[in-house]
Amino acid sequence: MGTLSLQGLRKEYGQSVAVERVDIDVGEGELVSLLGPSGCGKTTTLRMVAGFIEPTEGRVVIAGQDVTKMPAYARQTGMVFQSYALFPHMTVAGNVGFGLEMRGVGRAERDRHIMEALKLVQLDHLSERLPRQLSGGQQQRVALARALVINPEVFLLDEPLSNLDAKLRAQVRGEIRALQQRLGLTTLLVTHDQEEALTMSDRLIVMEGGRVRQVGTAEELYENPADAFVADFVGRCNIVKGTIEGSAMRSESGSLLPCRMEGAPANASVLALRPERIAMQPGTDGSGLTARIGAVLYLGAQTEYQLDLDGTVLTAIRPTPQDNDALRHIKTGDTVNISWDPAAARLLPA
């Protein structure tokens, strides 16, 4: 396994810029994910690494070698496509063996490697099936085995879980991560699913509009977002626009919201507050902030509350109240006292 380094990577299509000066380094055995909404340039970046798209500017360096001008077939990358892109006319073994065949590996050795790779994904008993005879999850694992068997320098995953149903997704997510760590695969993962990125990655890169917004570990991005976009995209977040007044923020509808002043950037214009940091007490005792319950959404382990503070709408998420909890009988239209640790409310640039 090698390292991956993208240096000042840029892609223009006519007048529009798809990727703007992206610098990314992925260390050996590290899993880095590119996270962002559709059209943010993450897939274009991945395709430039694979060699399907030629960058307008910048360099792609794999295992210390500049491959910017190298065609896709000569690069040592193993890619898992969103649609899996299995060869429909070849068996599972034929699919997995294709890359080895292209590398001139002899029949006997090829068969051995194919079976090893299929064992890795627990599909060795299905080697003679055709892709259409497999379930979505099995096809996905064939795609993994096919990309891994060639021992690529860099492992590329393009939304690998988006075609699986929710339950399977959580399971496969864990399996891929375990495999990646066990084999020490240098991996670049593209996803729009923040949960996927948070749980699988060593580091995340949040992209938007072709630019990198922030790079960091899951915890860094969640606890210390660089701007309102990252705060909103990674996890759920209340974003309130307003103006700073003393050690609080005056929202556009007039509520005075306590927040953390130290470390606030000069261009801060919004307040970012995670829904789980908002505490609630039924009734009003005259002190603190008062809100009206706009809606109660029961989510099982948690319950989500829509709070209306004189026109400023906040979302709170609390563990679902149990029998003797004061919040148990709260319903739409009730008035509650809300509060939060001012340190949890960050001032960020928009």
């Binding site: 060699g51 399907f52 896709a72 077939y73 000569a74 890359g99 590398r103 096919r146 060639i150």
Partner: peptide, 16 residues
């Protein structure tokens, strides 16, 4: 024929 299937072959080392 999905474009990605061709790309997958290229990614695995097949020339055009």
């Amino acid at each position: 024929i999905p474009r990605q299937v061709e790309e997958a072959a290229g990614n695995l080392g097949a020339r055009p």
